[in-house]
Amino acid sequence: MVDFIVGHFNYWVIITLMMTGLYVIISTGNLVKKLVGLGVFQTSVFQLYITLSKVAGGRPPIFDKLPGYGTETKYGAAVDPLLGVIYSNPLPHVLILTAIVVGVSTLAVGLALVVRIREAYGSIEGDDIDEAEYKIEIASS
């Protein structure tokens, strides 16, 4: 049982962080704080991918010098091309490099919108903006 708890403790922490981020997005009215919540939510998803890729006692997937460079047989070479060294799984790292940049791009566009909304409405609180719109709706119809 202890092995199960130690093995899964990471996932539970990540889920808590993910839910904290989601809670901040949904509950706050302030637009900048919503974007911060979005950032926390996305960062916790990155942590899920990276916890997935860690191998016990493994090293970062970077060869010091290229072992078996140029050996003809692709795999199953006489000597294990990785020379018996355990490496963590490189694929989630690549995916997360993409996801981080996508996250920042969304954040930048979101912040640009917040600036323009502040200029147009004079406030970045969700309910002030709805109120301003409601007044216009009443005035025009």
Binding site: G7, S53, I86, N89
Partner: peptide, 21 residues
């Protein structure tokens, strides 16, 4: 956490390590 032969760490991820060389 850290299990070397989980499906994620034992299929395509490991294949990359061999093929990159």
């Amino acid at each position: 956490f850290g299990d070397a032969n989980s499906p994620a760490n034992s299929y395509v991820g490991l294949q990359y390590m061999y093929d990159t060389i």
